[in-house]
Simulated assay, not measured.
Amino acid sequence: MQVRYSTSPTSAETATTADLRDTFLVPDLFVNGEVHATYTHEDRMVIGGAVPGTGQLDLPAWTDVLGTESHLERRELGVINVGGAGHVIVDGEKFELEHLDGLYVGRGSEVAFAGEEAAFYFVSASAHATYPATLLSHEQVEPVALGSPEAANERSLFRYAWGQDLETSVLQFGVTVIADGSVWNTFPPHLHARRTEVYCYVDLAEDDRVFHFMGQPGHTRHLVVRNRQAVIAPPWSIHAGAGTGSYAFIWAMAGENNCYTDLSPVAVDDL
Rank of each mutant, 00 (worst) to 15 (best):
W162E: 08
V141S: 10
F173I: 03
E154A: 15
Y160E: 12
D180R: 10
S169E: 10
L146R: 09
L171P: 05
A145R: 10
V141L: 10
A161Q: 03
L204K: 05
V198M: 00
G163E: 00
E150I: 13
V198W: 03
E150G: 15
L204N: 02
G181Q: 04
H190E: 08
R159F: 07
E167M: 12
R194S: 15
Q164L: 13
L135H: 14
Y160D: 11
F173C: 02
T196M: 08
A161H: 04
V177Q: 04
R195M: 07
T130Y: 00
V202Y: 00
V210A: 02
L146V: 08
A133M: 00
V210F: 00
T186P: 00
A193G: 14
R195P: 05
R155K: 05
F158T: 08
A179K: 13
E142N: 13
V175S: 01
V177W: 02
E139M: 05
T134N: 12
Q140A: 11
H128A: 14
G163D: 03
E150H: 13
N185M: 10
P189G: 09
V144M: 11
Q164H: 12
A205Y: 02
P149H: 07
A151V: 02
T134M: 12
F187K: 13
V144S: 11
E142M: 14
V177K: 03
L146K: 09
G147F: 03
W162A: 10
R159M: 11
T130C: 05
A129Q: 14
E154K: 11
N185Q: 11
E142W: 11
W162H: 13
D165H: 12
H138E: 01
D203E: 07
S169Q: 11
V198N: 03
Q172D: 06
V144F: 11
T176A: 04
L166G: 05
A145H: 13
F173H: 04
L166E: 00
E150F: 10
L171Q: 05
G174M: 06
N153F: 03
A127Y: 05
G181R: 04
P149G: 08
R194A: 15
L136E: 08
L171W: 05
S148K: 03
S126M: 09
S169D: 15
V144N: 10
D165G: 09
Q140L: 14
T176R: 04
P188G: 07
T186A: 06
F158D: 08
T168P: 00
Y201P: 00
R209C: 02
E197R: 02
L146N: 07
V175D: 06
H192S: 04
L135W: 09
D180A: 12
T134K: 15
R155Q: 01
S156Y: 09
G147C: 02
T168Y: 01
